[in-house]
Design a protein around this nucleic acid. Structure first.
Length: 571
RNA sequence: CGGGGCGUAGCGCAGCCUGGUUAGCGCGCCUGCCUUGGGAGCAGGAGGCCGGAGGUUCGAAUCCUCUCGCCCCGACCA
């Protein structure tokens, strides 16, 4: 490929529409162009990078025993009505009608279609397990598309679905996929963590998100500095503190605290730190009020609270001031656990506290030296708060770090949710009719490219890992009008091609500076420069974009050197 | 969906508040000269219904109303 003939519209300045680095660089390097909010055209270089990721995904999925297929993107409403998601899915599902006024949607995911396929074509345990995947453009009518390829409405996704006869089989399949995902993201050159995610009703550790660690990530991830523990906020376990045993409980003392309602104001007034105070929040759980007791400096993690209560997180919400007063007879700000007439849940941390302050359950009063067990007993207790960087790792006791992550993959044990809803069953070896045990496994292919750029760039441009760079080598002919230089550049270009190394020859009639700048911007791993030093000394420069290492050598050594360096760079 | 910001040449922006000849600047683009190891220089040139509609006015890029689009924060989403 000749640079002069490729469409690589690089930009010298940052586009006004881009905020995050990957978005800016993808536009500047001529990888993508926006058509409309959330949809992008993949230009030749951008598409080539996506194809590289797809290739790795295919290799690893196939190696893990999965088979590729391709399902329709337009899906009939009936299937979604059968699963119940036509109502549940909300506005992200882009719906429309055909000429016969039949309802359809653009596929944001394919559980319904694949389950329909399975129920029609898989009938016996002898056919199981089956693991199917596709790589396809998905459409989600996102409320707010943002950050270029990071959160588009249209994006390329690998989605896979497994069907097993038994729970154990499904769990084995899950582990295989988890392993394959580790290989895929490692080969893509990403710094990532597989984090335990909330798996809602199914429970157990059967949902993992694969998070690329990057400041621009939309999710917060908790990772241990010492071991491999990693989890997202909804799932991250707080290790309980041990109770202080050397402090004697004191007498409860009632103090007037006029107008002091917020934690900060109360602590300030009482001259204590927030970790010596227990705040009492009120949640509405399916319209029932519930008091939630939490240390003053902690925050509720609603997903964990919902899980403890055995309800979905959509069924709980904070009560408003009126609901609080109606339920407790106390205005918000002075609520306390003593004398409460509604049920209560205490965060486990409170058990470790001695002589703490609480609201008195009476306007303008607080109590000091309160102790759980002696002065009140909550209905329930458990881990219901968000972890903080001050917490310790549940596995090894090491220090935790809160960091941001980009979700590039998600694996999930689905169980029988869809197979039951759609009546997708098979006969087991006893002749019994059983629903398939399913799993689903997604990878945001286009998002992987954006995430990789977030992790691999510098002030000059993109530094994609060789495994997913659009092409591997770029030969710069610095003087296209000089026959000797042009001949040498062409020679190297052709030799690299013969070795099956993807290469672009920059044969443009431009000044050297422009070629160097563009080379840095688009970030091809190996840059081979043929210029004056070749005519003068017979030397050619080979430069590694990622490391910046530069070697000078005679023409005869160039091709083998580049081949060796690339072989070392690609896993 | 709530809040904020922006739409003027391919890209980045000024002009708008305080209406007034042919609407500017930088980059890019085209032609020529020159230059050729880090986005050079000189000369000439093309390119805009100032997002759209309506209104106010003798006169609107500029003021008012509506509308469409894009971006950011939040909500939502996995």
């Amino acid at each position: 490929m000749r640079f002069s003939q490729l469409l690589i519209p690089t930009l010298k300045e940052d586009p006004a529409e881009a905020e995050v680095i990957s978005h800016k660089l993808l536009l500047r390097a001529g990888f993508i162009r926006k058509l409309t909010s959330g949809s992008y055209t993949y230009l030749p270089l951008g598409l080539a990078a996506i194809r590289k990721v797809e290739k790795i995904v295919r290799q690893e999925m196939n190696a893990a025993g999965a088979q590729e297929l391709l399902m329709p993107m337009v899906q009939p409403a009936d299937l979604w009505q059968e699963s119940g998601r036509w109502q549940e899915y909300g506005k992200e599902l882009l719906r429309f009608q055909d000429r016969h006024n039949r309802d359809f949607c653009l596929g944001p995911t394919h559980e319904e279609v694949i389950t329909d396929l399975a129920r029609k074509n898989i009938h016996s345990y002898k056919q199981l397990p089956v693991n199917l995947y596709q790589i396809q453009t998905k459409y989600r009518d996102e409320a707010r598309p943002r950050f270029g390829l990071m959160r588009g409405r249209e994006f390329i996704m690998k989605d896979g679905y497994s069907f097993d006869a038994t729970d154990q089989g499904a769990e084995e399949t899950y582990e295989k996929m988890k392993y394959a995902y580790h290989r895929i993201f490692t080969r893509c050159g990403l710094n990532f963590r597989a984090v335990e995610a909330d798996s809602g009703a199914i429970g157990g550790s059967f949902s993992h998100e694969f998070m690329v660690l990057a400041e621009t990530g939309e999710d917060t991830v908790v990772i241990c500095k010492s071991c491999s523990y990693a989890a997202n906020m909804e799932k991250a376990v707080c290790m309980p503190s041990s109770a202080a045993t050397d402090v004697a409980p004191k007498e409860v003392e009632k103090i007037e605290t006029p107008g002091k309602r917020k934690v900060a104001a109360v602590c300030d007034f009482l001259d204590i730190t927030p970790n010596r105070l227990v705040k009492t929040l009120v949640y509405m759980v399916k319209d029932e009020p519930l008091a939630v007791l939490l240390r003053g400096d902690h925050e509720v993690e609603e997903v964990k609270l919902a899980n403890l209560l055995g309800v979905s997180d959509e069924e709980i919400r904070l009560a408003d001031d009126k609901e609080i007063f109606d339920a407790t007879g106390t205005p918000s700000g002075y609520l306390g656990p003593i004398g409460l007439r509604i049920k209560s849940v205490a965060d486990q941390e409170i058990a470790a506290m001695v002589n703490f302050a609480v609201g008195a359950g009476e306007k303008n009063f607080h109590l000091l030296n309160v102790n759980m067990g002696r002065d009140f007993s909550p209905t329930m207790s458990g881990d219901i708060r968000k972890v903080t960087a001050a917490d310790r790792c549940v596995l090894c006791g090491g220090e935790l770090k809160l960091t941001r992550g980009i979700e590039v993959g998600h694996i999930f044990k689905l169980g029988t949710k869809y197979s039951e809803a759609l009546g997708a069953t098979f006969l087991d070896d006893q002749g019994a009719e059983i629903p398939f045990i399913m799993g689903c496994y997604g990878i945001g292919v286009s998002r992987v490219v954006a995430a990789a750029i977030e992790q691999h760039h510098d002030k000059d441009g993109i530094k994609l890992p060789a495994a997913i760079a659009p092409v591997q080598a770029l030969v710069l002919n610095l003087s296209p009008k000089d026959d000797e230089i042009s001949r040498a550049a062409l020679d190297i270009y052709q030799q690299l091609q013969q070795k099956d190394i993807e290469v672009i020859l920059d044969d443009r009639d431009e000044r050297p500076g422009i070629k160097f700048k563009d080379a840095d911007l688009i970030g091809i791993p190996m840059r081979i420069t043929v210029g004056k030093s070749f005519t003068k000394e017979g030397m050619i420069e080979v430069r590694n974009r990622a490391s910046g290492d530069t070697l000078t050598m005679p023409l005869t050594e160039v091709v083998s050197t580049v081949a060796d360096l690339l072989a070392a760079a690609i896993l």
